[in-house]
């Protein structure tokens, strides 16, 4: 199968599945570092809402959203891979190897899944800083 046989939507899904996890992780890290550095320095860390720091809520929100994004990317990539792994096509005669797209989809499953784990791990510190920086 060549790239041109795929529809544009599937192409976009493929790239989302491949890079979505990484983008989500980037978003979480940049947001978390900016929110915490700014929040703690500017005294926002002293403002509490519902017993927790305001910035803690923000951090929890960002982390959940980004984890969800990575999870969606993983699922999208997994579904594409499930669909493509079998159609060998003329470009992939050596049957152990899938087409480029199937390969990228597989890479997307692993990468986005790994990023999902990293996002979760990166959220662990939040639990230890609920009330102060």
């Amino acid at each position: 199968m060549t790239a041109h046989d795929r529809t544009g939507i599937e192409q976009r899904r493929l790239w989302f599945g491949l890079l979505g996890g990484g983008i989500a992780w980037t978003g979480q890290l940049i947001a978390a570092s900016f929110i915490s550095e700014w929040g703690c320095f500017s005294g926002l860390g002293d403002r509490h809402v519902g017993g927790l720091m305001m910035i803690t809520w923000l951090l929890i929100g960002v982390s959940l959203a980004m984890a969800a994004l990575a999870a969606v990317a993983t699922v999208v990539a997994a579904r594409l891979h499930a669909r493509w792994r079998t159609d060998g096509g003329p470009g992939s005669v050596d049957s152990p190897y899938d087409s480029s797209e199937a390969f990228l989809a597989k890479a997307g499953v692993i990468a986005s899944g790994l990023f999902l784990f990293i996002i979760v791990a990166q959220s662990i510190p939040i639990v230890f800083f609920l009330r102060g920086c």
Binding site: G22, W25, T26, L29, A32, S33, S36, E37, G39, C40, F41, G45, F115, F117, I118, A121, Q122, I124, P125, I126, F128, F129, C133
Partner: peptide, 30 residues
């Protein structure tokens, strides 16, 4: 990807908030 998210671990002694640093501990470990 992740190599771009570790830079703060060169600045752990620079007086950044503890909370900020802990995120970079996580990324640097992962």
């Amino acid at each position: 990807f992740v190599s771009f998210g570790l830079w703060v671990h060169h600045m752990f002694t620079a007086g950044l908030p503890s909370l900020s640093k802990s995120f970079f501990t996580a990324s640097s470990l992962m």
